[in-house]
Simulated assay, not measured.
Amino acid sequence: MHVDFSAVIPYWFVLLKGLGLTLAFTLSCAVLGSLAGFVLSLLRQSPKGWLRTATTAYVEFFRGTPLLIQLFWVYFCFPAVFDIQVSPYASVVLALVLYMAAITCETFRGSMKSISSDQHDACVALGLSPHVKMLHVIFPQALLRSVPPLLSNCVSLFKESSLISAVGVADLMFVGQSISNSTAKPLEFLTTVGLIYFLIAFPLTRGVTLIESRYLKRYAC
Score class of each variant (00 low, 15 high):
1 M>C: 14
3 V>T: 14
7 A>S: 14
11 Y>A: 01
14 V>A: 08
14 V>D: 06
14 V>W: 03
16 L>S: 11
18 G>S: 01
20 G>A: 14
26 T>C: 06
29 C>A: 13
34 S>R: 07
35 L>T: 05
36 A>K: 07
37 G>N: 02
42 L>F: 00
45 Q>M: 08
49 G>Q: 09
49 G>C: 10
50 W>D: 01
51 L>E: 01
52 R>H: 00
54 A>V: 07
54 A>Q: 06
56 T>S: 13
57 A>N: 01
63 R>T: 06
64 G>Q: 06
65 T>F: 05
70 Q>Y: 07
71 L>S: 05
72 F>D: 03
79 P>F: 08
82 F>M: 13
84 I>V: 15
86 V>R: 00
92 V>L: 12
94 L>N: 09
95 A>K: 07
96 L>D: 01
97 V>S: 00
98 L>G: 08
104 T>P: 02
107 T>S: 05
107 T>H: 07
108 F>I: 13
108 F>E: 02
109 R>Q: 04
119 Q>L: 00
124 V>W: 00
130 P>E: 07
132 V>R: 10
135 L>H: 14
136 H>V: 12
137 V>K: 13
140 P>C: 04
141 Q>P: 01
143 L>G: 00
146 S>Y: 03
152 S>N: 15
156 S>R: 04
157 L>W: 13
158 F>Q: 09
158 F>H: 14
159 K>E: 10
161 S>I: 11
162 S>E: 07
165 S>V: 04
166 A>D: 07
176 G>N: 09
177 Q>L: 15
178 S>E: 09
179 I>M: 03
181 N>C: 01
181 N>Y: 15
188 E>G: 05
188 E>F: 13
188 E>N: 04
190 L>N: 10
190 L>V: 09
192 T>N: 15
195 L>R: 04
196 I>K: 07
196 I>G: 06
197 Y>L: 12
197 Y>Q: 07
198 F>I: 11
200 I>Y: 02
202 F>A: 11
203 P>Y: 14
204 L>D: 08
207 G>T: 04
211 I>Y: 07
215 Y>I: 15
219 Y>T: 15
220 A>K: 08
